[in-house]
Amino acid sequence: MVTPTQEIWDWLAEVPDPEIPVVSVTELGIIREVAWDGDTLKVAITPTYSGCPATSVIDLMVEEKLREKGVQNIALERRLSPPWTTDWVAQSARDKLREYGIAPPIDGTASDGRMGRAARLSGHNLTIPCPRCASGNTDKVSQFGSTPCKAAYVCRDCLEPFDYFKCH
């Protein structure tokens, strides 16, 4: 019997991102497609960027979850086109990131996969609100935070350091 794909999406929603365990791989938008091809389940995964060190761990976690649920024949596909964008991050994940102490990506700034159309058009740096106190009085400390997909910031009001999930 073939498991309905919606049930498989529900199972994959239980797989946490290995670098940010409060959000699932589905909430991050990196699971792109789930489909049956005969008796083989095909799952397309788009990494947050092509050199993401967590990609192989995510593949393993997805496969383990599916095998735990009884799926025998699995084909994982690494899909690089279109490239992943922070626009694919679900609102639930953005809320969880903020609660976890990570500033979520700013909506609408990942439109071209680089700095973001909104930032380019304004000619100004984006204001990244502190996830702890919501102050906009923040400074970027480093382009790279705890992982390559995050930048390190500090809040000048509450003095707390935090990561910002960079837009791309």
Rank of each mutant, 00 (worst) to 15 (best):
A35R: 10
G70S: 06
S92K: 14
A54N: 06
R67M: 09
K69Y: 05
P4D: 11
I106L: 15
R32T: 03
V15A: 05
D37H: 12
F144I: 11
T147S: 15
E77D: 11
T147F: 14
C130P: 09
R78F: 05
L97T: 04
P129A: 14
P47A: 02
K96W: 11
D163F: 08
P148A: 15
I102Y: 12
I20N: 09
R78M: 07
R117A: 07
H168Y: 00
A54T: 03
E27Y: 00
T40V: 14
A13T: 03
L97N: 05
A110Q: 10
D157Q: 05
W88V: 02
D139F: 08
S135M: 09
I30Y: 00
T3H: 01
G70N: 03
R94W: 12
G51T: 05
T109A: 06
I106Q: 09
V23R: 02
W11H: 06
T85R: 09
Y153W: 11
G51S: 10
L41C: 00
L41E: 00
K150H: 09
G38V: 07
P83T: 01
T127Q: 15
P161T: 07
K42W: 08
N137L: 10
W9L: 07
S50A: 15
T46E: 06
V23W: 05
D139N: 01
P83K: 02
S81K: 01
F165N: 06
T40E: 14
T40W: 06
T48G: 05
K69M: 13
I102T: 06
L41I: 02
P53G: 06
L121G: 01
A152C: 06
P148D: 13
A134P: 04
W88Y: 15
E64I: 11
C149Y: 11
E7P: 02
A119R: 15
L41H: 06
V57A: 12
A75G: 02
Q143N: 14
E27N: 01
